[in-house]
């Protein structure tokens, strides 16, 4: 038994017939062939599959595709044009906020909502704000810095230096 659904992903509307058990992350990766959204665990722990659903960050491995019927989704492919960088993408690049890049799309989508709710977060608020997104490479320091950079840019403020700080 399949269900007919209509979803908007990065501004484009898609109509599909899907099995009820199809996970949203698989719909995005397999049916729509957008592979920037990743899978890193089975238990809703890692956040590699984070996308925005109606502007809220969600873990697309724990949502059924049928539940996204009528919703508006944003994936990493939709945050900027391919030859452009939005403030978060720029912040991650300028501050070395990524190594292997696997957690990065999820981090960016989560940080997008974080800054939406809290345009000028403290370091502690950022750390708690990304606590559902695991990164195994960076040690998080530069992810925090990247989000602060984007926060400043969003508010029209000159961000802190992107040179590494050493003691």
């Amino acid at each position: 038994m399949t269900k007919h659904i209509k979803i908007t992903v990065n501004g484009t509307e898609h109509e599909l017939d899907v099995e009820p058990r199809l996970l949203l992350v698989h719909l995005i990766r397999e049916n729509l062939a957008m592979t920037g959204t990743h899978i890193g665990c089975d238990t809703t722990s890692c956040g590699a599959c984070t996308i925005l659903m109606d502007g809220k960050s969600v873990k697309s491995c724990t949502i059924l595709a049928v539940q996204a019927n009528g919703k508006n989704l944003t994936t990493i492919e939709g945050v900027s044009a391919e030859n452009e960088y939005n403030h978060l993408q720029e912040g991650f690049k300028e501050n070395h906020g990524l190594h292997c890049g696997f957690c990065t799309p999820g981090m960016i989508l989560r940080a997008t909502e974080l800054l939406e709710n809290n345009p000028d977060p403290t370091e502690e608020e950022i750390r708690w704000g990304i606590s559902g997104n695991l990164c195994r490479c960076t040690g998080y320091n530069n992810i925090v810095k990247a989000i602060k950079y984007a926060s400043a840019k969003n508010r029209g403020i000159e961000p802190a230096s992107t040179e590494p700080e050493f003691v």
Partner: peptide, 12 residues
């Protein structure tokens, strides 16, 4: 609420 899972899970 701050101590329940994480922000994305709390959105659902």
């Amino acid at each position: 609420t701050k101590l329940i899972a994480d922000p994305s899970v709390r959105n659902r």
